[in-house]
């Protein structure tokens, strides 16, 4: 078991940036086609990151670099814990800590756009955090364990018990992946009113590290989506892969058809969805267990 875990973690650390970067490229391609453009090559994100690394290192405040780097490494650890089959709740706690380092890195310069972006990022975190925690609890109620390795070893996919939680998780995935209408703190597209928000003061290699961390994060989050479907039957892995790709496509679609909302709509809608989809699902499940 230990070697299997080790291989999974190694695969994650090595492959996640490639998968994440490739998905990013697909995202740009599909988005372009939706908008009637040809779009860049699917490998464009890699070219971008390589170019960023070659740029002259510029900083507003020197110590920002170490916070960005800690953010990246913490993201690798978070995903690593997940793919090692560890405690899901601890993975999510670790994710929160990781997100906090991004906020610290962003606010470190106290420059106007980055500060606004950072405060918005905090509101986004406040919006999605309850659903993230309820997701972990949902898995615990459904399967009796927090361990990822045991959850995926069940005879029945968790989605059977957790349809509401799944919908809630997809909802917050939009925030996590920084997709419109919830890309308040920083956007992948060049039309954000606070310029680049959180990543405003990050250039060159610092920005490249942020991109890398985002790729790691994408793979981790899609791993959680897959976990709803995976069970002891190998066929379920294929089903999970299809669902993950569909979920990713759904996010791209939402990104392209919706306009950015303000923070109140973001917070209230996310909390309502969390309560209605996640809370009700969980309550029914808990009461059934009693």
């Amino acid at each position: 078991m230990a070697t299997k875990q080790f291989i999974f973690v190694l695969l994650y650390i090595v492959c996640a940036p490639f998968i994440g970067g490739f998905l990013d490229g697909v995202d740009r391609k599909v988005s372009a086609r939706m908008q009637g453009r040809k779009g860049p090559s699917v490998f464009q994100p890699f070219y971008d990151v390589i170019k960023l690394f070659q740029k002259e290192p510029l900083v507003v405040k020197r110590s920002q670099t170490f916070l960005v780097m800690t953010y990246l490494l913490f993201m690798v650890i978070t995903g690593g814990l997940f793919f090692a089959g560890m405690d899901l709740l601890l993975c999510f706690f670790s994710l929160t800590t990781c997100a906090m380092f991004l906020v610290l890195a962003a606010s470190f310069t106290h420059s106007p756009y980055a500060s606004v972006g950072c405060q918005r990022e905090l509101v986004q975190m406040m919006a999605y955090e309850p659903m993230v925690l309820l997701t972990a609890v949902g898995f615990y109620v459904a399967t009796g364990t927090f361990y990822v390795k045991d959850i995926i070893g069940m005879d029945m996919s968790a989605i059977v018990y957790l349809p509401g939680v799944f919908i809630g998780f997809l909802f917050i995935l939009t925030i996590k992946m920084r997709k419109s209408p919830f890309d308040l703190s920083t956007a992948h597209h060049a039309h954000q009113e606070i310029v680049r928000g959180v990543t405003q003061e990050m250039v060159g290699s610092n920005l490249a590290l942020i991109h890398l961390a985002e790729w790691y994060e994408t793979v981790f989050l899609l791993g959680v989506v897959a976990m709803f479907f995976v069970n002891s039957n190998p066929v379920s892995y294929v089903a999970a892969l299809i669902v993950v790709l569909l979920a990713y496509f759904l996010e791209i679609l939402i990104d392209n058809v919706s306009a950015r909302v303000n923070w109140k709509v973001l917070l209230v809608s996310t909390w309502v969805v969390t309560l209605v989809a996640g809370g009700v699902n969980l309550t029914i499940l808990v009461l059934m267990h009693r």
């Binding site: 510029l58 900083v59 507003v60 670099t65 310029v195 003061e201």
Partner: peptide, 10 residues
């Protein structure tokens, strides 16, 4: 690391 200091974006 050698870093060149720049002013923030305003």
């Amino acid at each position: 690391h050698k870093r060149k200091h720049v002013i923030s974006y305003m």
